[in-house]
Amino acid sequence: TGEEYIAVGDFTAQQVGDLTFKKGEILLVIEKKPDGWWIAKDAKGNEGLVPRTYLEPYS
Rank of each mutant, 00 (worst) to 15 (best):
G48E: 01
T20I: 04
E47C: 06
E31W: 11
D10W: 05
G24D: 05
G45L: 05
K44W: 11
L55Y: 00
G17W: 08
G45R: 04
D10L: 02
W38K: 00
P51T: 04
P51A: 08
L19P: 02
I30D: 02
D10P: 06
D42I: 02
G48H: 02
E25H: 10
L27M: 08
E31C: 06
F21G: 02
N46H: 10
K32E: 04
G48S: 01
Y5D: 00
K23D: 04
E31Y: 11
S59N: 12
G2W: 08
E25Q: 12
T20S: 14
Q14L: 12
W38T: 01
I30E: 02
E4I: 12
D10E: 07
T12R: 08
V8Q: 08
E3K: 13
F21N: 01
Q15V: 09
P51N: 12
E25L: 03
G45K: 04
S59H: 11
T53K: 11
V50Q: 00
L28F: 15
T53I: 13
A7T: 11
F21S: 01
K23F: 08
G24F: 06
I6T: 06
E25F: 04
T53S: 14
K44P: 03
L27S: 00
V16C: 06
V16A: 15
Q15G: 15
G36Q: 05
L28A: 07
L49V: 14
G2M: 13
S59K: 15
I26D: 01
E56S: 13
A40F: 02
L27Y: 02
R52K: 15
T53W: 15
Q14Y: 06
V16L: 14
E4G: 05
W38S: 01
G45F: 04
L27R: 00
K41T: 07
T53R: 11
T20F: 04
F21I: 14
L28I: 14
E4H: 11
K23P: 03
T20L: 03
G2A: 13
K41L: 11
A13S: 12
I39G: 03
K33V: 07
P57G: 05
D18M: 10
S59D: 11
L28R: 11
Y5V: 03
V29T: 02
P34Y: 13
E4S: 13
E47K: 15
G9D: 13
N46K: 09
I30K: 09
I30Y: 09
I26E: 02
A13E: 05
L27W: 01
V50H: 00
K32V: 07
E31F: 09
K33G: 11
V50C: 03
Q15M: 14
P34H: 13
L55H: 01
T53M: 12
P57K: 09
G17V: 04
Q14P: 07
T1N: 09
D10K: 03
I30P: 01
L19M: 09
G17I: 04
V8A: 08
V29N: 00
G17T: 13
S59M: 12
D35A: 06
P57Q: 11
D10T: 07
G24E: 03
E47V: 14
G2N: 13
V50G: 01
V50L: 03
Q15L: 10
A7M: 03
S59C: 05
A7F: 02
A13F: 03
W38H: 02
I39S: 06
P57H: 08
V16T: 15
E56A: 08
V8N: 14
G17M: 06
Y58P: 04
N46Y: 09
Q15W: 07
D18K: 10
L55A: 01
L55R: 00
R52Y: 10
E56I: 14
D42M: 02
V29W: 01
E47G: 07
K41R: 13
K22Q: 13
G2S: 10
G9K: 14
F21T: 03
K32W: 07
I30A: 03
Y54N: 07
K33L: 10
G45W: 03
A40V: 10
K32D: 03
T53A: 09
A43F: 10
D18G: 15
I6G: 02
G45Y: 04
T20W: 04
K33E: 04
A13P: 07
R52H: 10
G48L: 02
A7C: 05
K23G: 04
G9I: 14
A13R: 07
S59V: 13
E47Y: 10
A7H: 00
A40Q: 00
N46M: 09
F21W: 02
E56K: 13
V8H: 06
W38Y: 07
K41Q: 06
L28Y: 12
A40D: 00
W37I: 10
V29M: 02
F11M: 04
I30G: 03
K32Q: 07
Q15R: 14
R52S: 15
D35C: 05
G36N: 07
L28W: 11
P34F: 12
V50Y: 01
Q14H: 08
A43R: 13
P57F: 15
D18W: 15
V16Y: 08
L49P: 04
P57I: 14
E56M: 15
T20Q: 09
Q14D: 09
T20K: 05
